[in-house]
Design a protein around this nucleic acid. Structure first.
Lengths: 259, 259
DNA sequence: CTTGACCTTGACGCTGCGTCAACCCTCCAT
DNA sequence: ATGGAGGGTTGACGCAGCGTCAAGGTCAAG
């Protein structure tokens, strides 16, 4: 007759585990001796080992009972099912691992390499860190909504950074938001350039966001994000509206421009 | 200003998850509106997405907070640590998968193929299912204690099954335990053969279990298991003691045999 | 008799939320 | 004005598989 700790030791498990198996009815409770101690037969060791073999193989405890009683074909089916689940779990972890590898490699926050390239180009141009940070957050939002589309857009976006007008715009914005002054003249110039760029894009029919245009919520969100980052953006939005454009992240024509 | 469900939708998580992040202090609680509703800024969406990126990569929630604040090198170190843990977890699951594949392939209960071969040979010889089951349980115990040694022993064990004496022994035991009679003559003959075999093994110095001899507990257990399976084994043990041997699974000389 | 090692039951902790329950708020149609 | 749908709020249990106290009773040895 064995005590619970002897039983556990033979099977290579903890005493707590044995009691747990009793609780969930996986291992039958043995007789008690005069003092209330559980006393186990040798057969219990075999039962416990069989349980552990299945548990070590990744079988959930809740299924082990049935499996130990099952016939060969039922057993095989159950095994196959378990194997499938293990495979899924492994695949999930592998995916996590790839993700985390990208985290380590990428700029900082799992932005596609194309995007980090874009951000680096902005820095090269002389855009301030605050503005770059704003851009980064915007692209985080965009990437969350359209993970694949973003990568398609980036080449164009990067190419556009050669446009002197755009460079000028970013530099003005950097200057404005780096200072604490209420430099309205700068904002006005920025608005002028933005309107001009929007006009060009509009004429060349470049504003074709396809399905993306369907839900404009994220764009409102992007604008809100910009306003949060610096309230002066609100003034910029106002200036754009005066010029016939609504929004900032996605400019929308309000009316025909004054001819 | 966003409601909690809008925030959750933007980040692709459930409302419950957001509240959970608040609870554990991972995401700061926003201001409430007049009616007590949480109202979120656009920045919260970015924060939440950043959290999910790390969580999806397998980072435990408890570490995400620190990681988001960490500098590049700390971040990299943390990433490496996480990656290591993911690797361990994957390795564990892979091991489980192998185990379960063996379960499906093997006889029934993760006995090494050598052992199932041995059990099959017993059946060929005409050993009854009850006795084979007893052998199987014994080998389950042995395999749990010395997983590797068992495989080394099996070739010898299998070879010994060619010994006519041993075959006779097994057949007698099968007959006895298959019937309900108190056939003492059979037990006596079994004891005689056992003693004879033990004598041979003893003389040829074959009883060298090495380190295994150190702890004899499992052998007591094996004997107990046999007695549980059939109380008549107790009588057999008594007969063996009369012949100068103690135990059954491992015979131990009590005294010099009568010359 | 004491001491230390074991035994007992009961209950909380961990992870990351899912899922009621019970109730309040808002908005739209009647 | 009212009622119902569809939000929101806190609180609490459940899940898997035990680990880990807590607060005792028991056993074997010195």
């Amino acid at each position: 007759m064995l005590t619970i700790s002897q039983l556990a030791a033979y099977a290579g498990v903890t005493v707590r585990a044995v009691r747990h198996y009793h609780q969930i009815g996986l291992l039958p409770e043995p007789e008690r001796d005069a003092s209330g101690y559980r006393r186990y037969s040798a057969g219990a060791v075999v039962s416990l080992i069989r349980i552990r073999i299945l548990a070590n193989a990744g079988v959930p405890l809740s299924q082990i009972g049935q499996m130990l009683e099952a016939d060969a074909s039922t057993f095989a089916a159950a095994v196959e099912e378990i194997d499938r689940q293990l495979g899924d779990e492994i695949a999930r972890l592998e995916a996590s691992r790839k993700q985390i590898a990208q985290l380590a490699a990428g700029d900082r926050l799992a932005l596609a390499p194309e995007v980090t390239t874009y951000l680096d180009r902005l820095r090269d141009i002389g855009v301030s860190e605050r503005v770059v940070a704003g851009e980064r957050d915007s692209w985080i939002l965009m990437s969350a909504r359209w993970p694949d589309r973003v990568r398609e857009w980036m080449p164009d976006k990067i190419a556009q950074l050669d446009d002197p007008q755009l460079i000028r715009l970013y530099r003005i914005l950097s200057e404005i938001f780096e200072s604490d002054s209420g430099d309205d003249a700068g904002l006005v110039e920025a608005a002028d350039i933005l309107a001009s760029l929007a006009e060009q894009a509009y004429r060349s029919g470049e504003i074709d966001l396809g399905e993306v245009a369907q839900d404009d919520l994220p764009f409102d969100l992007l604008d809100a994000l910009a306003v949060e980052a610096d309230p002066r953006v609100k003034r910029l939005l106002g200036l754009m509206r005066e010029r016939g454009w609504d929004g900032l992240a996605r400019l929308e024509r309000l009316a025909e421009p004054p001819t």
